[in-house]
Design a binder for these strands. Sequence first.
DNA 1: GGGGAGAGATGCCGC
DNA 2: GCGGCATTTCTCCCC
Lengths: 240, 240
Amino acid sequence: MEAELKEALQKNKAISLFANCSVRYSGRAESYLGAGDRFIIIKSDGTLLVHQPQGSAPVNYMKDGSAHDVILENGEMQLKSQNLALKEYLDITLHTIHSFHTAELTDGEKIQLMGSEKDMSDMIYNNPELISADFKPISREEQTKYGFLDVFGYDKDNNLVIIECKRYIADLKAVDQLERYVKKMKELRGINNIRGIIAAPKITPNAKDMLNNRGFEFCSLAPPNNFERYDKDQKKLGEY
Amino acid sequence: MEAELKEALQKNKAISLFANCSVRYSGRAESYLGAGDRFIIIKSDGTLLVHQPQGSAPVNYMKDGSAHDVILENGEMQLKSQNLALKEYLDITLHTIHSFHTAELTDGEKIQLMGSEKDMSDMIYNNPELISADFKPISREEQTKYGFLDVFGYDKDNNLVIIECKRYIADLKAVDQLERYVKKMKELRGINNIRGIIAAPKITPNAKDMLNNRGFEFCSLAPPNNFERYDKDQKKLGEY
DNA sequence: GGGGAGAGATGCCGC
DNA sequence: GCGGCATTTCTCCCC
């Protein structure tokens, strides 16, 4: 088994392991995980993931570019990973290997995603009346030294308007951001008539309070969903 | 193969698949991923992960509590997942299954982690001289309606001191946070003599500027690492 | 490579 | 359940 693992690693194959193991990590932080059954994945780019039987996030991991090797130590197999560039080290003691498989995977596809915050700022830029009848956008996704403005423009009274978009619920951090942008812009342009608007489907009560306190505004707006909605009339599983 | 997959799903086994597939998702957003080789995991809690051959993060996923089923449609196997509570739907078209394995995993262990922000605030609370000789901490991890104070206390001049810890590099958002806490505390207590301090190993130049602008302070401090450092004298892989 | 910000963020804890 | 926040966040984009 040890020889097979070593060979798979050397040939840079994708590896999948079900194993009872313990894990020790040292790098940005340090961690220890006692013995238990886990999935271990090693990808050809050096990425290593350790998954417990529950939950979405890996319990331990190493980033791409990591190097891996297997050694026998005190009669137990040790999977040792290191990423010298990041000074990160991961040691897995493999107590029992339930199964071990390899594959060579080819995949040139990139995911297409719809409904992001950028889609939202594009939507506002192209349909400014969604904010208000008199809003005239000037730019979107504006990268500046002092910040990154989702959309900004002018209203009919020639006030500068800065809009911060959130694809889901706007929270205190969203108000922080907007406040920082507005302050910096006032400072840079030496003006005081700048309106700040949060555009989001929802906002938390505390964020709404803070927004009002600061004299900013809220505009209820959801990101676009341009794919056909195929979740309408979805059958429940088992009805097929 | 279809029957085996169905059975494994019904028996709530952990499933590992190498397959050429396409993926469609609809829920919080919408996505499409064209055909390619991927690694698919289904956990007994309903979590589903789709991993491309590269990178740490899954390209698509479903959260725990999702239900899965396999059907044949136009001669191709479809793995259909849904999470009715979250209104999320994922369809995987399995063009070719390279390998398919199941396991029953038992794992009651929880990871122990050292070096978090909480460890840092504990360290400051117990060793306030790390901030300054005259700092007297009063509380830590204080929950308030407008925020969550890492550590706060008084200095020798009886000024209230609010400390925001960051385990790595403090950035603009960290200053936002500190500013929000200080402002709210001034408002709530009707006082003006509050010092704000960011404690972190590093701070970005822009964040430092903003910090100085707001009259706050920076204290260079790293989180504790109490495990024995076993990365010292690490051999390079291959030297074993 | 650093800085800034979004994410289908996830996970944790508190109310 | 929502809210607030850290994360070995990860990822992308821009400078």
